[in-house]
């Protein structure tokens, strides 16, 4: 049973210093993008197109990480039944969907000049799109189900189902023959690119943590308001 705490024991998380962390995250993002764009020499094949590397790849990495967070909180919700875990999973799912959409969009912008096509139905692109659609479904599900406990259980199921796709997306270029190239590694990428890529991956990570945290705060406030409303309807305390 989801513990339906009375409002008095429901303590929404406080924003504390998170706005400062957010300012830091976005400044760090701007700085690392600037350094990457200014310092990295053009690639020998694709010239300045190479700079999409610094947004497409971090978006994909952080997307995977965010969906792993969804998996973690969804499992913990099913295990412990705590409403806050459901809200944390939902917040991560929102942000993960954002990064998933970014990955697809930036990949298409890269594909057109580099491959000659915006899209190809290969295993990598298709599985990434499936992942995106599952999480769009997850968010729609949450919007349609009004009963909190039922919503949380169904969401947890879909969240786990969706997150299972992440390793499949990652391995798709190795398991199946695709247009998308296999993963790069520091051995296949010049050192000067690797450094900028890592800095930007951290920038995306900080932005992700910030966004998930703020969405979580908002979701908790929302639920606290619901609880207060219910208690008032039941005669108040």
């Amino acid at each position: 049973m989801v513990s339906r705490e009375p409002p008095s024991s429901w303590d929404p998380p406080r924003q504390g210093r998170w706005p400062w962390f957010g300012a830091f995250a976005f400044l760090f993002l701007v700085a690392s993008q600037t350094v990457a764009i200014v310092t990295s020499p053009p690639d020998r094949d694709m010239g300045d197109l190479e700079k999409i590397l610094y947004v497409h790849v971090p978006a994909a990495w952080i997307m995977s990480l965010t969906f792993a967070v969804v998996m973690f909180y969804s499992l913990r919700y099913l295990w412990k039944g705590r409403e806050t875990d459901d809200l944390a999973a939902a917040s991560a799912a929102e942000v993960g969907t954002l990064f998933n959409g970014l990955t697809l969009l930036l990949g298409m912008l890269w594909g057109k000049p580099a491959w000659g096509v915006w899209w190809a139905w290969d295993a990598r692109l298709t599985s990434t799109l499936v992942l995106f659609l599952i999480f769009v479904g997850y968010l729609s599900l949450r919007a349609f189900v009004d009963e909190p406990e039922r919503r949380a259980q169904w969401s947890a199921a879909v969240g786990i189902l969706g997150a299972i796709n992440v390793p499949i997306v990652y391995m798709s270029v190795r398991w199946w023959r695709t247009l998308h190239q296999v993963q790069s590694s520091p051995d296949t990428v010049a050192g000067i690119y690797v450094l900028s890529l890592r800095a930007n991956a951290f920038a995306f990570l900080f932005v992700m943590i910030y966004l998930v945290r703020r969405r979580y705060e908002a979701a908790c406030l929302d639920r606290a308001a619901d609880h207060a409303e219910q208690d008032a309807a039941l005669g108040g305390r």
Partner: peptide
């Protein structure tokens, strides 16, 4: 009827 370039996983500045 359609030509796509398949990029490798290597990124290097020109020699």
């Amino acid at each position: 009827t359609g030509l796509m370039v398949k990029h490798s996983n290597e990124y290097h500045p020109p020699k």
